[in-house]
């Protein structure tokens, strides 16, 4: 309920045309990883906090708030099949409603799995809270 924080590297984001789907997210992660590699830059370190309210991202070095993503805007999360240290989620942009897939590199496969399971738990808790509120 109070949230869990993970230290990850933001690989990047790409637009997707559906809110969910294994093949869709796999293709999106493939694009993000290819772009990140081609750029040659080190991806930025971020602290990703997961709670039933959503995902909050801070820059790990400066502690600057990067983004707050409401749980109601997150449609899907996954650990990529091919890149098994990559955690990704799909969320609807608050600016223009487009769907964005964001990918994060974790130190280990187990960490990527833990992030995905924590987000899934947040989905479940948010759903319970939503039912009660309704």
């Amino acid at each position: 309920l109070e949230g869990m924080t993970f230290n990850l590297r933001h690989l990047g984001m790409t637009l997707v045309d559906q809110p969910k789907g294994e093949d869709l997210s796999a293709a999106a992660v493939k694009r993000i990883v290819a772009t990140a590699k081609a750029s040659g830059k080190k991806s930025e370190k971020v602290a990703l906090k997961v709670s039933p309210q959503g995902i909050v991202l801070h820059d790990s070095l400066t502690n600057k708030l990067l983004e707050k993503v409401s749980i109601y805007r997150i449609s899907y999360c996954t650990v990529d099949k091919l890149h098994d240290k990559v955690f990704a989620y799909i969320a609807q942009s608050t600016l223009n409603g487009t769907l964005e897939c964001h990918a994060y590199l974790c130190s280990k496969r187990k960490v990527a799995q833990a992030v995905a399971l924590t987000v899934a738990q947040a989905f479940t808790v948010a759903f319970e809270l939503w039912q009660v509120a309704k």
């Binding site: 809110p19 969910k20 997150i74 449609s75 999360c77 609807q92 948010a126 759903f127 939503w130």
Partner: peptide, 18 residues
């Protein structure tokens, strides 16, 4: 092993105002 970890959000696009 073809098992993948992926989850759909049951509250996506839902709000308490619905």
């Amino acid at each position: 092993n073809t098992n993948t970890i992926h989850f759909d959000n049951p509250v996506y696009q839902k709000t308490t105002e619905d």
